[in-house]
Structures are given as structure tokens and as C-alpha cells.
Amino acid sequence: MSRRKTTWLFLSLLIFMTLAGLLLSVKLGAVSMTWEEIRTGIFSGGQFKQIILHLRLPRAILAYLVGAALALSGAILQGYFRNPLADPFVLGVSSGASLGAVLSLELGLSWAVFGFSSQSWLAFFSSLLLVGSVYLVSESQRSGRSESLLLTGIAAGAMASALTSFLLFRRSDAYEQAVFWLLGSFSLSGWKEVWLMLPYFLLALFISAYFAPEMNLLALGDEVAQSLGCPVKSIRRLYLFLATLLASFSVAVAGIIGFVGLIVPHSVRLLIGPDHRRLFIFSGLTGGMMMIFCDLLARTIFAPSEIPIGVITAALGAPFFIYLLNHHTRRSS
């Protein structure tokens, strides 16, 4: 099948699956509803209005936005590092965020600003602070190579993780609360998280798609990109900023959800090719769709209790990813 046909088929499938996922997310849960109850709940304020409009719908939409943001962030960083193994957390966003969240527990902070808890704020800012320091340290090495940024990120991430483990070790009672950050969850999400994510996600998607031709050139290596006329340094800075903010916002509202940012862009690339003009948009759409279903599973398998969503994304994503890799390798050989 031609790449063009695959792309259209894929897009139709994504739209269909996303709509189906949204409907199922509204319908299923600890309290199951019939379609009739959903219809009356939304339009004429039946008994389920509260559950639909204030719990399930914002939660499904937020799951979509976080999935899309993580997948887009992963797609950007894989192109940035020319490495299909890069993910949104490679520069230490996740380690920085968990350190911030655990620090907030350790300090016993319980304030909230604009409706967001001290944990969310500390997670957000400490992840930005960590990536910012990683960037400055690697810039000071003046090697001009993205590998030094990657390695500094890995080292700083390991340091932050060590500190987090130490804090958790000292305060075993904080462990349960910390699991929210370490494995991710949408259990506390509402419209305010949606309104926080939505504008930034749309802006980041637009900017990254607009500069996708430059990312295609960066994927050939800095020297070649520059020789083709790409302003390498400014484009690199822009993408690093976009990807880090996408991951930090996601972590602040939903904790650390692994694997989506790694496998979604990679799988999409196998299906529709490496052109970032399509890859960015399709990674976003696929990541969002996938997260809706993962969250649906996370809250229905053992309802009314919930499994952390990171468990679902890895447990479902990994086998699918291995299947796709095998299938692709067999086809190309």
C-alpha cells in the first residue's frame, strides 16, 4: 500500500477510535450507564449529569491531551537526538518532577495556587529547573554535540532519582502518595487541568508542525542541516523548549506516565514514514487515542479501585511495540 493511502486509512482509524474511546470513557466505570442515561444526563440534566460532565468527560479529555503531549514531546526529542530511543523524560523531566513532588510531601506542603496543589507546582518547576540546568551545563562544555546534552540529562536524572529514593526511604508513609507521581494517574483530574493543558498543547502542536521541515533537516545531522540552510541553533533551542514544557505540563497534571512518549512516535514512524510534517501530528493523535483507552482500562479492570496508568501503558504498549518491530523487520528484509 502506498504511503499516502496508509496515511489516510490511519487518520480515519484514529478519528473513529478516538470518538469510540471518548464515548466508552463516558459510559463505563464504577457506575455503568446506558446510552439513554448518557443522552438524558448530558442534555436534560439527569442523575448522571455530574458524573458525565464533571468526572468522566474532563478525565477522558485530559487523558487525551496528556497522551498527545507526551507522544508529541517524544517525537520531537527522537528527531532532536536523531535517536528513536529518546523519550520525553530523557533529559530528566520525570526525575526532576518526582523529586519536586516527593519534596513537597517531605516538607508537608499543603497549599494550592489556582487550584493546583503544591505537589503539582513543585513537580512542574523542579522538572523545568533540572532540564534548564542540564542545558546550561552541556552548553558550557561547548562541544556543540547533542550527545553531551543527552548524557548530562541522564546523569542529572540519576542524581535526582537517587535523592527521591532517599527521601522516600526516610519517609515510608509518603510512599503511597508518591506512587501517584511515579506511575501516573488521572484520578484527580478535572476541567482546570484540561484548560491548563489545552492552549499550550495546541500552540506546541502548531509550532512543531510549522517547523517540521527544519526538523526533517536536523534529522540528517547538524552539519548537513546547516549546509542545507537550516538555522540549526535556534531551531534546536525552540524544539527543546517545546518538548520540555509539553512533558512538564503532562507530569504536573498526571504524574509520570512512561512508554507512551517512546513507543507512539516510533510506531507511527514505522507506519507512515519519518517525515516530521506528518509524524508530529499523527504522534499526537495516536498518543491521545491510546491514553484514553489506557485510562479506561486503568479505572475499569479492578473498579472501583484504580491501577496506576503507567502500569497499563507499559503492559499493553510493550507487546504491541515488539509485534510492530518484528512485523516491520520481517517486511523490510
Binding site: 552539519e223 548537513v224 549546509s227 542545507l228 540552510g229 537550516c230 538555522p231 540549526v232
Partner: peptide, 11 residues
């Protein structure tokens, strides 16, 4: 600018 060089030299 890199664009001006790239319009004269191809690598």
C-alpha cells in the same frame, strides 16, 4: 546567514 551560504554552496 546559513541560508545565504546554502544558496551558493551545496555540500
Amino acid at each position: 546567514k546559513s541560508r545565504q551560504i546554502a544558496s551558493r554552496l551545496a555540500y
